[in-house]
Amino acid sequence: MSLSSKEAAASLSEAEIAGRRSAQLYGYRKASPHLVMWGIIWVLGYGGTDLLHDYTNLIWTMLVAGGLLAGTYLNWRASKCTTEAERTPRAWRMLALGLIAVFFVFATYAIMWPVHGRQLAAYPALITGSVYAAVGLWAGMRYVLAGILVVALTLFGFYYVEHILLWMAFVGGGSMILAGLWFRTV
C-alpha cells in the first residue's frame, strides 16, 4: 500500500483539523470552572461593595486573592497531562499572569487618578471581557462571544444604569457564570 502526495496531504490535514478541534473543546471544558468561579466572585464582590461600601477594599482583596489561589489550584489539577516537574511551573505561571493583571488594573487607576466609582467598577470588567475576546481569536469563538457579551453589558451598565454595582454583580457576574456553563456543554 502506498500513498500519493495528495492523499497524504489530505490525511494530514484531516488529522490536524480533528486535533485542533479536540484541543479547543478540551480547553473550553477546562476554562468552564474558572468562568463560573469568577462569575461568583463578581456577584459577591460587586454585590458586597454595594451593600458594604466601607469594606470595599477588604472584600475585593479577599475575593481576588481567594480567586487567584483557587484558579491556581484548578490549573494545577487540570495539568495532570504533564509530569510532576512541569505541573507546578505551569500553575505558577497562571498565578503570575493573574497577579500581572491585578497589577495592571491598579497601576492604571494610579496613573489615571482621580477616577470616580463607576469607572472603578467598570474597568476590571472591560479588561476581563477584552482579554477573553482576544484569547478567543486563538482558543475558540465561545471565548470571543463571552468577552463581547461582558464588554457590552459593562458599557451599557456604565452609561445607562444608575446602580452599576448591582448591575455588575447580577448581570456581569451572572453572564460570566452562564458563559462558564455554556463552555461545559461542548
Binding site: 490525511s11 488529522a15 483539523i17 478541534r21 479536540s22 497531562c81 504533564t82
Partner: peptide, 17 residues
Amino acid sequence: RLKIMAALKPLPASDPI
C-alpha cells in the same frame, strides 16, 4: 481511526475523554 487518534492526541492520558 485516524480521526479518533487525532482527537485523542491533544488530550492527557490521565484525563480520558
